[in-house]
Computed example of a mutant assay.
Amino acid sequence: MTTKALEHLTGIITGDSHKSQYRSGPQLVGFFNDFGEGDLYGQGFPSRAQFARGKLDKFNGTDTMKRIVSAAFDFIGEDGFNAEDAAYQFNRVLSRDGFRLVMKDDYGWMEGDREVRINPRFEVIPLGPAVLAPTSLVAISYEAVTEQVRKANQKIESGDYSGAITNAYTLVEHLLKLLLTETATAFKETEGDIRALYKALQPSLNLDPAKLEEPLKPIVGGFQSLIGGLYEMANKGSDRHARRFNPARHHAKLAVNAAFALCDFLVESRDYQKARAASAPNKEAAA
């Protein structure tokens, strides 16, 4: 763990960062004694921060360190503190070491608009390779999309809900750019707004709701709202930007399933248009 991450963690454990509960000297001794230490609090005790940092330096690089980090953030639901926001801030430095904190629970349910989580806790997991690298979706096919969705679902199972939302968004963005390139439609390669990318693609795949037959208009037109929703969710609940809300499991599943439905439809539409063009090149195909 880097020096910056250790400094950040020291502030969380002591409470000096004001993001977690304050721990007195005796409480700090008890905290680290839970991990096999045998210290006593008394005369000659160093400063609280010095004591905590010394213990972190001792355990740095060991398997015990993961348990210490998890215990340091064990204040979910404590009045006056936001453990999820504190974990998000810590992840900004911890990710440089190849790890991140994710929230897990045994199970949960919704009571109205309130989410009930059983045994919520933070665990340290290694950062795997990005689910969607720039060249990982090399073919526009159902199989290629399904593989990316499978990997996004693996993040959901690991408890990395914001990461799964990011991957869902990136999948849609990359597929739209592949389709725009294939259809020779002009677009900005640096464009990251899937709403703009989809709008540019619509004419090429005959997806303009105004030009479709009546039974198709509502559902195809609904994709515009779906894309807008995915855009907002990724901006506010993924790890692409500073999060404005902490997504739960069902939020991540919604994003991944929505991305799959859209991508699957786009792939099918692209195949359909190609087949129609091949059989009747002079006749405009319908969606």
Rank of each mutant, 00 (worst) to 15 (best):
residue 204 S to N: 11
residue 151 K to H: 13
residue 212 L to I: 10
residue 171 L to D: 04
residue 146 T to D: 15
residue 152 A to C: 07
residue 190 T to E: 11
residue 153 N to T: 10
residue 193 D to E: 06
residue 194 I to A: 04
residue 138 V to C: 12
residue 204 S to T: 10
residue 186 A to Y: 01
residue 146 T to M: 10
residue 198 Y to S: 00
residue 200 A to G: 06
residue 137 L to W: 03
residue 186 A to G: 09
residue 211 K to M: 13
residue 142 Y to M: 14
residue 199 K to W: 09
residue 141 S to K: 02
residue 194 I to L: 08
residue 153 N to F: 03
residue 179 L to W: 00
residue 198 Y to A: 00
residue 204 S to K: 13
residue 141 S to N: 05
residue 182 E to W: 11
residue 142 Y to R: 15
residue 137 L to F: 02
residue 200 A to W: 01
residue 186 A to W: 12
residue 210 A to S: 10
residue 138 V to K: 15
residue 167 N to E: 15
residue 172 V to F: 06
residue 168 A to Q: 05
residue 152 A to Q: 04
residue 179 L to G: 04
residue 146 T to W: 07
residue 152 A to S: 11
residue 177 K to R: 09
residue 201 L to C: 02
residue 190 T to I: 06
residue 195 R to Q: 08
residue 156 I to S: 03
residue 139 A to D: 14
residue 207 L to W: 00
residue 198 Y to W: 09
residue 162 S to V: 04
residue 150 R to L: 15
residue 190 T to W: 03
residue 151 K to V: 04
residue 140 I to H: 06
residue 192 G to S: 14
residue 180 L to E: 02
residue 145 V to W: 01
residue 189 E to P: 07
residue 184 A to E: 13
residue 167 N to D: 15
residue 148 Q to R: 14
residue 144 A to G: 12
residue 179 L to V: 02
residue 157 E to Y: 14
residue 209 P to R: 12
residue 143 E to D: 11
residue 161 Y to I: 07
residue 187 F to Q: 08
residue 158 S to Y: 03
residue 201 L to M: 03
residue 190 T to V: 09
residue 201 L to T: 02
residue 172 V to A: 12
residue 184 A to Q: 15
residue 168 A to Y: 01
residue 189 E to R: 10
residue 171 L to N: 08
residue 143 E to P: 08
residue 199 K to F: 10
residue 145 V to G: 00
residue 176 L to W: 03
residue 180 L to G: 10
residue 177 K to C: 05
residue 147 E to N: 11
residue 207 L to Q: 08
residue 179 L to H: 02
residue 174 H to A: 13
residue 180 L to Y: 02
residue 163 G to E: 00
residue 139 A to V: 08
residue 190 T to L: 06
residue 144 A to I: 08
residue 207 L to A: 05
residue 180 L to V: 10
residue 156 I to F: 06
residue 208 D to Y: 04
residue 202 Q to H: 04
residue 159 G to P: 02
residue 177 K to I: 01
residue 184 A to D: 14
residue 160 D to G: 10
residue 153 N to S: 10
residue 207 L to R: 11
residue 206 N to K: 15
residue 175 L to F: 02
residue 145 V to K: 03
residue 157 E to Q: 14
residue 147 E to F: 05
residue 208 D to Q: 15
residue 143 E to C: 07
residue 188 K to Y: 05
residue 187 F to N: 12
residue 208 D to K: 13
residue 168 A to P: 05
residue 142 Y to I: 13
residue 192 G to T: 14
residue 176 L to Y: 02
residue 170 T to M: 06
residue 186 A to L: 07
residue 157 E to M: 12
residue 198 Y to V: 00
residue 162 S to N: 13
residue 166 T to N: 03
residue 170 T to H: 04
residue 200 A to M: 12
residue 202 Q to M: 13
residue 201 L to V: 05
residue 199 K to N: 01
residue 156 I to C: 08
residue 165 I to V: 09
residue 138 V to D: 15
residue 139 A to T: 15
residue 138 V to L: 09
residue 200 A to P: 01
residue 188 K to G: 14
residue 188 K to Q: 14
residue 187 F to A: 08
residue 181 T to K: 15
residue 169 Y to P: 03
residue 209 P to I: 07
residue 193 D to M: 07
residue 183 T to F: 11
residue 159 G to E: 12
residue 195 R to G: 13
residue 169 Y to S: 07
residue 210 A to E: 12
residue 149 V to E: 07
residue 204 S to D: 11
residue 200 A to H: 09
residue 197 L to K: 00
residue 164 A to K: 01
residue 157 E to K: 15
residue 162 S to Q: 11
residue 144 A to K: 08
residue 177 K to A: 00
residue 178 L to K: 10
residue 154 Q to D: 14
